[in-house]
Amino acid sequence: MRTLPALAGLLSLVLPAMALAQTANMRAASEAEIRQHLPGTSELKEAKNGYEYRQGNKNGYKISNGQVCVRFPDKSTDCVSVKTDGKKFQMIDRKGGRTRF
Results as ranks from 00 to 15, higher is better:
T77D: 06
L10S: 14
R27N: 10
M91K: 05
N57G: 15
K88T: 06
M18V: 08
K95M: 13
V14Q: 09
K87S: 15
N57R: 13
A47M: 10
F89A: 06
R100I: 07
R27P: 10
T77A: 02
R54W: 04
A17P: 05
A29M: 00
P16L: 10
H37Y: 10
R54S: 13
K75N: 11
Y61C: 06
L20T: 13
S12L: 13
G9V: 10
D78T: 12
L10T: 09
A28S: 11
S81M: 03
S42Q: 15
A28P: 00
R94M: 07
L44I: 07
F89S: 04
Y53T: 11
R54D: 04
Y61H: 15
T77P: 00
G97Y: 12
R100S: 15
V68W: 02
L38A: 00
A8Q: 03
Q36E: 14
T41I: 05
K58W: 11
R94F: 11
G86E: 11
P5N: 11
L7W: 01
K45T: 10
S81K: 04
L13A: 03
K62S: 06
R54G: 01
E43L: 14
A32E: 14
L44V: 09
A47D: 07
G50T: 11
A28H: 02
Q55P: 11
K83D: 10
S42W: 11
R100Q: 15
A24D: 13
H37K: 12
L38D: 10
M26E: 03
K48F: 10
E43R: 09
F72T: 00
R71W: 02
Q90M: 12
S12H: 13
K45C: 00
E33G: 08
K88N: 10
A6G: 04
I92A: 03
D74R: 02
F89I: 12
L4S: 00
S30Y: 05
R27Q: 05
T23W: 07
S76W: 14
S42I: 04
S81E: 10
K83I: 12
S12C: 09
Q55W: 08
L15M: 11
L4T: 00
S64I: 00
F72W: 14
T99V: 13
R2G: 07
G56Q: 12
T77K: 01
G86I: 12
L38I: 12
N57F: 13
P73T: 10
F72K: 03
E52K: 01
Q22R: 09
Q90P: 13
Y61K: 08
M91E: 14
I63M: 02
G56M: 05
G9T: 06
R54T: 12
M91P: 01
F101Y: 08
Q36K: 05
K88Y: 09
M1L: 01
V70M: 10
A8F: 06
I63Q: 07
L20I: 05
M91Q: 08
D78R: 05
G66P: 14
K75T: 14
G50I: 12
K48R: 14
R94A: 08
A29T: 04
L20Q: 08
Y51T: 00
Q22S: 11
R100N: 15
K87Y: 00
L7A: 14
Y61G: 01
S64P: 03
E43W: 09
S30G: 07
E31P: 05
C69E: 15
A24W: 14
S12D: 08
N25I: 04
F89E: 04
E31S: 03
L15A: 04
K58C: 08
M91A: 13
A17E: 01
L11D: 05
Y53R: 09
M18R: 09
M91F: 08
V68R: 04
P39Y: 14
